[in-house]
Amino acid sequence: MSLKQQVTDDMKTAMREKDTSRLSTIRLLLAAMKQKEVDERVELTDTDIVAIIDKMLKQRRDSITQYEAANRTDLADQERLEMTILMGYMPAQLSEAEVAAAVDAVIAEHGKTPAAMGKIMAALKLQLAGKTDLAAVSAMVKAKMA
Rank of each mutant, 00 (worst) to 15 (best):
V38E: 13
T84C: 01
M83I: 11
M145N: 03
L75Q: 03
K142Y: 05
Q5V: 13
P91R: 07
I85L: 05
D39M: 04
K34M: 03
A135R: 11
P114R: 09
H110R: 12
V141S: 04
K55R: 14
Q5K: 13
Q35Y: 09
E68P: 05
V7A: 04
A139Y: 10
E68I: 12
E109T: 03
M117Y: 15
K125W: 05
T65V: 15
K144M: 04
I120E: 02
V106T: 09
I107S: 02
S2T: 12
T84W: 08
S95C: 08
L23N: 05
E68M: 13
M90L: 13
M140E: 10
A70V: 00
E109V: 00
S138Q: 09
A31M: 07
A105P: 08
M90C: 02
D62Q: 10
V103K: 06
D39N: 02
D19P: 09
Y89F: 14
T47A: 15
K131R: 14
L44F: 10
I120M: 03
L28V: 03
V7H: 04
R27D: 00
A136V: 00
Y67F: 15
L134K: 02
T73D: 09
I49S: 00
L134F: 13
D19T: 08
L28M: 15
G118T: 10
A143R: 10
A70Y: 07
R60W: 02
K112A: 11
V50T: 04
A115S: 15
L134I: 13
D104Q: 14
L23M: 10
T20W: 13
V141H: 05
K125L: 01
A129E: 05
L86H: 06
A100R: 13
M56W: 10
K18D: 04
V42H: 07
M33D: 00
E98K: 09
D39I: 02
R22E: 04
D48S: 12
R27N: 07
R41V: 03
M15T: 14
A143K: 07
T73G: 01
M140N: 01
K12A: 04
R60F: 05
L81W: 03
D104I: 14
K144Q: 06
E79H: 01
Q59R: 08
M11S: 06
S24P: 05
K131S: 00
D54E: 11
D77A: 14
Q78L: 07
P91T: 06
A100M: 12
P91A: 02
E17A: 06
E17D: 04
K12L: 10
N71F: 15
E96P: 01
K125Y: 00
A51M: 02
I85T: 00
D10E: 13
M1T: 13
L126M: 14
D74N: 11
L126P: 04
V42E: 06
T45K: 14
A146F: 12
K36I: 08
Q93C: 00
A108F: 08
L75M: 11
D9P: 09
R60G: 03
A139C: 09
V38Q: 08
L29I: 01
A32Q: 00
